Structure formats: C-alpha cells, structure tokens
Simulated assay, not measured.
Amino acid sequence: MKSKDIAVALFVVLIWGVNFSAIKIGFETLPPILFSALRFAVVAIPAVFFVPFPKTSVFNVLGVGIFLGVLKFGLLFIAMKADASAGLSSLVLQAQVFFTIGLSVLLYKEAIGKHHAVGILIASIGFGFFFIESGENITALGLMMILAAAFCWAISNSIMKRMQGVNLLHFMVWVSLIPPTPLLIISYLTETTDPISLFMSSTIETWLALSYVSYISTLLAFALWGYLLKSYPAATVTPFALLIPVVGMITAALVLGERMAESEILGAGLIFLGLAVCVLGGRWFKAKVKVVQESL
C-alpha cells in the first residue's frame, strides 16, 4: 500500500474506534433502532436534494442500504443497548475481516499472499485474547447478533468493492436514504410510539454523538473505506479493521470507564504485529529476496 493510503486506513480506524463510545452515549436517551434511523436520516436529508445519484446500479445502492444500514447497524445497535459493552462490540464486529476476505476469494478469485495469511493468523490469536475476560461484557444473544452484523457488513464490502468510477461520498448519501423508513417502522412497533417526546428530552451529548456517528463515522469513513477496497485486495485493506477494537477499548476505558484487562493489552499488541506483517510483509519479502540476489 502507498503511505498515503496507509494513513487513510489508520484515520478510518481511529474514527470507527471512537464511534462505539459515541453510540453508547447516544443510547442514554434514545433507543437503538431510532438512533440508527436518525443516523442515516441526518446524512441523507437534505443532501439528496443537492447530490446527484451516483453512477452505479440502483441495486448497489439498495444492497448497501439494506445490508449495511438496516441489518448491520440494526443488529449491532440492538446488541449494544443491553447485550454487549462498547469495547467488546468493537472487537466482535471485526469478524467482518474474515468474512470479507472469504467472500473476496469466493466471488472475485482474489489470491491471499503468504504474508497475509501469517499476519491474519497472528492478529486472530490476538483477537482471541480479548475473549478471555469477556464473560460479563457480552451475552450469547449479543454475540450472535454482532456476528450476524459482521457478516452483513462483509456483504456490503463486497458490493462496494465491485463498483468502479463511483463518487463514494455521493454514493453514501444516497445509501443513507434507504435505512430510515424501515428502521423507523421497526422502532415504532418495538421501541416507542412517541419519538417526538424522546427527541425533546435528549441531551446535547446525544445530539453531538448523533452528529459524529452520522457525518464522520457514516458519510466520511465509509466513503474512505470504499475507496480503499476498490484500490487494493480485501486481504490488504480489511486487516486494518482489526485495530478498531484496540482504539474502541482504549476509548471506552477513557470515556465510559470500561476496564481493560492485561489479556486485552496483550491481544492489542498481537493485532498490531499481525497488521504489520499483512501491510509490510510483502515489502520485507521483496527486500530479503533483493539482498539474497545481490549477495550471489
């Protein structure tokens, strides 16, 4: 990867790591499905009246809108309300890395280099350390919902990967028009029949959290992520997401007071190492081959 694109990937990781704490703050006064509906409504309106429809199939817009906006975030937000901590949610959701790579190999016949395989293996071991002391931070139902959300995210990644020549900011604006209606209907049937009173009683912290989740985490970060997925193989891009739980747990510890165990710190170190092998392993291998060739 180019140095510029590595910086872009790390910027997205920072945004999404902080995002989980912002979501938890938003849940203090708004129920999860309603919060998710507002997240996308804020992005889409009034922007869709000024942004042209992206140069892609309407089915791509509908696909990402449903799998990312309705299913992924609906499942994630419900789980985070009562069944999973912010830090552990940021971890489990990164199962999307493995789902995305698997779909890319299956659908796009992408090859995985040896350094990718070794790096993902190391990061996966680190990923597992986070579960050692997770018993009080997630329920079985929460785990299943977040894993399902991760698979929906992987499907969305696969749809975005196949698009070429698409303005991704425009794309995300129109994608954001899809989720609000079904989410608002679900919220009305299952959460509240009087959303206006909840809006009026929400705190400034809730609206700040909603603004961050909408404009920074949804519009900006997903547009940048889509650019990276179009530019590089999934096995090169998606391992960066394994850093999200590191940022997520550090942020949750600082902002929400969630505890980081020694096993989680060790896991974070292994994730960093695995990511370094994934991103830089190809360069190391080429450099080693060059040194051997020059010595002969």
Rank of each mutant, 00 (worst) to 15 (best):
G128C: 14
N167D: 15
G257S: 09
K290F: 11
M249T: 14
E264M: 14
P239G: 03
E191Q: 11
G26C: 01
D83G: 07
G165P: 06
A241W: 06
L242R: 04
I159W: 07
V12A: 13
W153Q: 02
I146F: 09
F151G: 05
I122W: 11
V64I: 01
A154L: 00
V48E: 01
F11T: 15
G113K: 15
A37S: 09
L184G: 03
Q94A: 12
G63A: 14
A47M: 14
F222K: 02
I146K: 07
Y215I: 14
V292F: 08
P180H: 03
L254S: 08
E262L: 15
T56R: 04
F53G: 10
D5K: 10
M200N: 14
L14C: 13
P239T: 05
W174S: 00
L198Y: 10
E205G: 05
S217A: 15
L168A: 04
I196Y: 13
I271L: 03
T139C: 10
L189S: 05
F67N: 01
A79I: 09
S217I: 02
A7D: 12
V51P: 02
S158V: 07
R39Q: 02
V92W: 03
L93R: 04
F50Y: 08
I196A: 12
I33D: 04
I112T: 12
A149P: 07
K81S: 12
K81P: 05
F40V: 00
G113V: 10
S21I: 11
P182N: 04
F222W: 12
L62K: 00
P46E: 02
A209S: 09
L168I: 07
G126D: 03
E205R: 13
A86T: 12
K109A: 12
A9F: 08
V173G: 05
